[in-house]
Design a protein around this nucleic acid. Structure first.
Length: 580
RNA sequence: GCCCAAAUAGUUUAGUGGUAAAACAAGCCCUUGGUAAGGGCUAGAGUGUGGGUCCGAUUCCCACUUUGGGCUCCA
């Protein structure tokens, strides 16, 4: 089915849901109910009522009773006055009608027979025949018009498909996706824990999880070394004064942890690494010959995210940003962005993350609170970035109002297992801060100039990256990232000693190897290793001892047969070295 | 922070208005095995925390905490 038709189907189903809810809950008001990716939602002001997922069977049943009477939607154009009269009981509809009219849009009502609504989106021809395969999925709160200051409405999510098979496949897919959830796998594979005693949003990375983290960092370090970055290290706190100078205090205050005093001075946990890096730059006079200066650090930052915003490793309160700040001349902007874009592309390839898109995040000039006021500089920076995105042949969408307070950015977006989008890499152009903090360099003519700054988060945050990778690989990491690369399985306890020797041999060659010495059947050990998603199992028994070899099995189930140990080690090494 | 829901051994779950059951994991024993679970025994929770109702609460009610799905916000 074409997307348009599918959208019509889904939007029509939202109408059906609205009608059912209004019948079951007298006084309930329906607000908006659009089609969305994979389904639809419908917002309600339920008044005195409340709805939970337990009520879905009842609501679905009501929808099915109404459905046969919905033979055809009829449409009628109305004036604002008529609309106000028709929907006098529904302030949300009146508000929308008034606004549409102000924008010069035509007002239209539709009616499938017994349920008049204000709406001009597309609908299906014959609802009674087409809206058969629907399911309500979840209930949530949502602010009217997406504004936190407005009343919170009740939003019901659902989906509908043209056929039963498609609906069932979709539901099955949702089930499968849950199995890849990084929180579930993180527990099963022992990669991280979040302890109530330490605090929410503060993940503790376990030994196995930290191998993955370290592999990512090592990979990035090599990448940066080749590209002329210099690594630095900076503390996790700084004086509040600093953030007042940069403007973070004004723009970022609500996500900064409360300040604390040391010797009469006020300090905060750093919410980002920028000022620390700037002060390294500012510590001595710089020449144009020093530029671009690429300072980099996997810096752990602390942000006081609201409780409801935390989500496993995807959104935390202590996050490590693989952060770099490139201080440069304006003439170097394009080449430095190109360099970073190439790094990002390489890294995504190394993680075999092929499904990302680029978001060009620009200023929203109407949001005076969020952004530094300087229209000309914003315009210049935005145009520059758009040119860079085009020149580098990135497919992109434009998002107004997604820029940082100090500049527009190129964001690389990926999806998690549930289809939610997350920002990973980010490349931000900052034309303000050099001037604001009076950072300088001496140009060829001996005169002072301000550098411009490229803020680069390579993966964005290591925590989020781990989450995305766990879900992307469903826990079956490629060899170079696997916490345990090989497990040695002796057939019985008789072969413990030779198995131990094999393990040592592998470990000597920097292979991450474990030995399963449990008193268990081979089948049992294989099952356990498979569930732990260990890439290679090495089996040692009588046969192997006699032939002076090992037997190798992959976690996918493939038996690679007998192989000589040194040959196996060489194969592993070359696979690890050539991963990207 | 807001809306809706959930919380029972290390993990995944069951269950009841009369102080809790199982599987896996753990420990011990038997078995000494050939490509996704060999068998037995033992120990382990007083049911997220705090109140309330009741003769009696893990079960019902309230608050809080944490987790999950959303909204807002965001790397």
């Amino acid at each position: 089915m074409e997307k348009n038709n599918l959208d019509n189907l889904r939007h029509s189903c939202a109408h059906l849901l609205a009608h059912a809810v209004k019948q079951l809950y007298p006084g309930a008001l329906n607000a908006i109910g659009p089609a969305i990716e994979n389904g639809f939602y419908q917002d309600f002001d339920l008044g005195k009522w409340s709805i939970s997922e337990e009520d879905f069977p009842k609501i679905e049943a009501k929808m099915r009773t109404i459905l046969p009477t919905w033979q055809k939607f009829s449409f009628k154009e109305v004036t604002l006055e008529e609309a106000k009269k028709l929907f006098k009981d529904n302030k949300y509809k009146v508000e929308m009608a008034t606004e549409f009219a102000k924008q010069g849009k035509k007002l239209q009502t539709n009616d499938p027979g017994d349920f008049l609504d204000l709406c001009k989106m597309g609908h299906v021809e014959n609802p009674a025949k087409e809206l058969l395969h629907f399911k309500l999925l979840s209930v949530a709160g949502a602010y009217w018009r997406g504004d936190e200051k407005n009343k919170m409405l009740t939003r019901i999510y659902g989906t509908v498909f043209p056929t039963k098979e498609e609906l069932e496949n979709h539901l099955k897919m949702l089930e499968e996706a849950k199995k890849r959830d990084h929180r579930k796998l993180g527990k099963e594979l022992d990669l991280f824990v979040i302890s109530e005693n330490i605090g929410k949003g503060l993940p503790l990375i376990t030994p196995k999880g930290n191998i993955i983290r370290k592999q990512i960092l090592d990979y990035e370090y090599e990448l940066e070394k080749k590209s002329g970055f210099q690594q630095v290290f900076t503390p996790h706190i700084a004086r509040s004064e600093m953030y007042k100078k940069t403007g973070h205090w004004q723009h970022y205050r609500d996500v900064m942890y409360a300040p604390f005093g040391i010797d009469g001075e006020e300090y905060v946990l750093k919410p980002m690494n920028c000022p620390h890096h700037y002060m390294i730059y500012a510590a001595r006079p710089r020449s144009y010959k020093d530029l671009p200066m690429r300072l980099s650090e996997p810096g752990t930052c602390y942000r006081f995210e609201k409780t409801g915003e935390l989500a496993g490793l995807l959104r935390v309160r202590a996050l490590s940003i693989d952060d770099s700040h490139i201080l440069m001349r304006e003439s170097q902007i394009e080449s430095e962005f190109k360099l970073c874009i190439e790094m990002v592309k390489k890294m995504f390839k190394a993680f075999s993350l092929n499904n990302f898109y680029v978001r060009l995040s620009l200023v929203d000039p109407s949001d005076a609170v969020k952004y530094i006021a300087d229209a000309a500089t914003w315009k210049k920076a935005g145009e520059k970035l758009e040119k860079i995105v085009k020149d580098n042949k990135l497919k992109y969408i434009i998002a107004k109002g997604e820029a940082s307070f100090y500049g527009p950015k190129i964001d690389f977006m990926v999806k998690d297992s549930l289809g939610r989008e997350w920002q990973m890499s980010t490349l931000q152009l900052d034309l303000f801060m050099g001037k604001k903090l009076n950072l300088t360099y001496i140009n060829e003519e001996g005169k002072e100039e301000h550098p411009v700054i490229l803020h680069r988060g390579l993966t964005g945050s290591l925590e989020r990256t781990m989450a995305i990778l766990i879900e992307h690989f469903a826990g079956a990491f490629p060899l170079w990232l696997s916490p345990v690369q090989v497990i040695v399985l002796p057939i019985s306890e008789k072969f413990l000693e030779p198995a131990q020797k094999i393990k040592e041999e592998l470990a000597k060659n920097n292979i991450r190897v474990e030995l399963n010495a449990d008193n268990k059947s081979l089948g049992g050990k294989i099952r356990e290793s498979t569930l732990q998603k260990i890439p290679y199992m090495v089996i040692i028994g009588e046969k192997e001892l006699k032939s002076n070899s090992i037997s190798v099995r992959k976690r996918e189930g493939k038996d690679l047969g007998s192989i000589e140990i040194n040959k196996f080690i060489n194969q592993l090494k070359s696979q690890i070295e050539n991963f990207s």
